[in-house]
């Protein structure tokens, strides 16, 4: 050991200790921030406020023709991406169909888009769990709508207001408590504006 080392600690030592502590606290806070959050669900919605493509036309799942987004112009649209193999989709199915009936008369259109699924399997799913009344179910050939909406996985639910703007998005199975407040606030905003 040299004399210089015995004499005491150089400023660089205390700078390192300080820097180390700051790094440690940052690490702890950043890591702790992740608790209780599903890493699959980003906090911010990338396409919130974006206009959706109103020229899109999708074939209806029941084979009765197409749904053209242009016909939905001026309506509030709730778009739910789902698949027959998706377990949470079963859980939210009733929430969506019930809400669809409840808001039918308030200019709200529910639209279910099948996400990477065999149409027959999707129809079986609805035959079992029930086709929502006035609810539109559409296929997504080539997954173009899926990509255009930026769907990370099923189920995902988008709320589009009467101007065709994405107002909100919900990841995973949606509950009544998630759905109603968002719809009500869109409706309130509409009547106000």
């Amino acid at each position: 050991m040299t004399d210089a080392q015995l004499k005491g600690r150089r400023p660089i030592f205390w700078i390192s200790v300080g820097a180390g502590l700051v790094a440690l606290i940052l690490l702890a806070v950043a890591l702790a921030d992740g608790f209780g959050r599903d890493p699959r669900e980003p906090e911010n919605i990338a396409n919130q406020g974006a206009k959706i493509d109103m020229t899109r036309v999708l074939p209806l799942l029941d084979g009765t023709g197409d749904v053209a987004f242009s016909e939905l112009e001026g309506k509030i649209i709730v778009i739910n991406f789902w698949a027959s193999y998706c377990i949470p989709c079963r859980a939210e199915h009733e929430v969506l169909t019930t809400a669809s009936e409840q808001y039918r008369d308030q200019n709200v259109q529910f639209l279910g888009i099948v996400f990477h699924d065999d149409p027959d399997a999707a129809r079986d799913f609805l035959d079992t769990l029930g086709w929502g009344d006035g609810y539109l179910y559409a296929e997504d050939p080539g997954a173009r709508a899926t990509v255009d909406f930026g769907v990370w996985g099923v189920p995902e639910t988008y709320f589009v207001d009467a101007t065709g703007t994405i107002v909100d998005k919900h990841y995973g199975a949606i509950t009544r408590d998630d759905l109603i407040p968002v719809l009500e606030s869109i409706l309130a905003g509409d009547s106000a504006g």
Binding site: A28, L31, A32, G34, F35, D38, P39, R40
Partner: peptide, 27 residues
Amino acid sequence: SGVINSVHSFTQSAIGPVLLWFLMAVL
């Protein structure tokens, strides 16, 4: 701990905060 999304991460559990405290204590 479930804070990172990954191929074989185990499911989220109460173990995260405990491990984080231990990590901090170790450091």
